[in-house]
Simulated scan of single mutants.
Amino acid sequence: MYVAVKGGARAIENAHAWLAEERRGDPGVAELSVAQIRGQLTLAVDRVMAEGSLYDPDLAALAIKQARGDLIEAIFLIRAYRTTLPRLGATLPVDTGAMACDRRISATFKDLPGGQVLGPTFDYTHRLLDFKLAAEAAQPEAERAAPDLRPKPRVTEFLNQEGLIQDEAKAEDAPPDLTRAPLEFPACRALRQQALTRGDEGFVLGMAYSTQRGYGRNHAFVGELRIGTCSVEMEIPELGFAVEIGEVEVTECETVNQFAGSKTEPAQFTRGYGLVFGHGERKAISMALVDRALRWRELGEDDTGAPAQDEEFVLQHADNIQATGFLEHIKLPHYVDFQSEIELVRKLRAAAGEAPDD
């Protein structure tokens, strides 16, 4: 496009050089390292990994640096790099019930076996600027308990003891892979979950908020929110058994939602579910709310016409990379298209001017 214009190639090279200069910033200030981004901007790194579908904190931090802090651009870089990687196999499903929890809370039960673990959270902080951080002085370290490695029962298990919550049906077939096949409708729940976890946090949050405001009648309680590390295992054909190949940090949310019952199901609670890489509780809770809203058909509920209940609307517009590509392509040259539009408008105006008065 621009390359075809006289001097276009040189202009692009100069634009890239200018971009690198802007990225570096003031040469008198120490350059921000990838290690610093990984260690101190962890929530940004976690979001890039989650929406980029690649668990690698170092690469996510590098992408953030290259993108000058533009997280959607960084997610784009990670997804593009991901397509170059070979697939060596598939891991077993992660057992989040055996998670080593740094944070575990419930809004439905006060007393839990294993206790409520607040962990690192903004929930109880005053939303006031801390000018001590600008002084770059060393901050006192708080006492940090080691993660509790003991498996903790899920909150929903307490409700299940009385049959008050719907059982989760286990899928018999392997779920489809959204990264290897295009999205098709109607989408199964596993495919919807993949689209939501890769979806833009702001969009999914907006959809979740709409359900809380009545667009979908989806009043939810956070049954349990967990953040911690889980083991990743893979079966090795030559060995005949699974071996642990690493750990990932994840955030998991289960919501408890009202359900009035149907002709075949008694009144009970139902579930919404969200799971993302890293520390991303806002995204996980949003996912759980939207997941529950999208389940209206399988639960025999009425379609209220709410945006969050429209599977095609939600899933087709959640992906920020697709949205960005379609949005930003309009700033590229469209000279020929626009000239044809101009000619059309001129012809319409000319025809209107020649038409006799009524």
Score class of each variant (00 low, 15 high):
Gly325Asn: 10
Gly274Tyr: 01
Glu235His: 10
Glu162Pro: 01
Phe185Glu: 06
Leu59Asn: 00
Phe277Asp: 01
Arg47Leu: 12
Pro27Val: 07
His219Glu: 13
Ala90Arg: 08
Pro356Trp: 09
Gly199Val: 10
Arg144Ala: 11
Glu157Asn: 02
Ala142Ile: 07
Glu265His: 15
Ile78Tyr: 10
Ala61Asp: 02
Leu191Lys: 06
His329Cys: 08
Val34Trp: 00
Ala355Trp: 06
Ile72Cys: 08
Gln212Thr: 07
Tyr2His: 14
Met99Trp: 04
Asp148His: 04
Arg180Asn: 11
Glu141Lys: 11
Pro175Ile: 10
Glu247Phe: 07
Arg217Asn: 15
Gln268Leu: 13
Ile72Val: 13
Ala138Phe: 08
His317Gly: 09
Val3His: 14
Thr108Glu: 08
Val94Glu: 03
Phe338Cys: 06
Tyr273Glu: 03
Cys101Val: 13
Ala242Glu: 05
Ile165Cys: 09
His219Met: 10
Ala351His: 11
Val256Arg: 04
His16Asn: 13
Ala306Ile: 13
Pro182Ser: 04
Arg198Ile: 04
Ile64His: 01
Thr324Asn: 07
Glu13Leu: 08
Glu31Tyr: 09
Asp70Ala: 15
Asp302Ser: 12
Ala308Gly: 07
Gly214Glu: 09
Phe122Ile: 14
Leu196Asn: 04
Ala74Asp: 09
Gly25Lys: 04
Phe269Trp: 12
Arg154Ile: 00
Gln258Thr: 14
Arg127Pro: 03
Gly8Glu: 04
Tyr209Lys: 11
Leu118Ser: 02
Lys152Pro: 00
Leu225Lys: 05
Ala260Gly: 15
Trp18Ala: 12
Gly278Cys: 04
Phe185Thr: 09
Phe131Asp: 12
Ala60His: 01
Thr108Ser: 13
Thr251Ser: 13
Ala35Asp: 11
Glu184Gln: 14
Gly214Tyr: 02
Arg295Asn: 14
Cys188Ser: 10
Asp291Gln: 08
Arg226Thr: 02
Asp337Ala: 04
Gln194Val: 08
Ala171Val: 06
Leu88Ala: 02
Ala352Pro: 07
Phe109Val: 15
Glu157His: 06
Glu141Asn: 05
Arg297Ala: 14
Ala293Ser: 12
Arg150Gly: 01
Gly7Phe: 04
Ala352Gln: 15
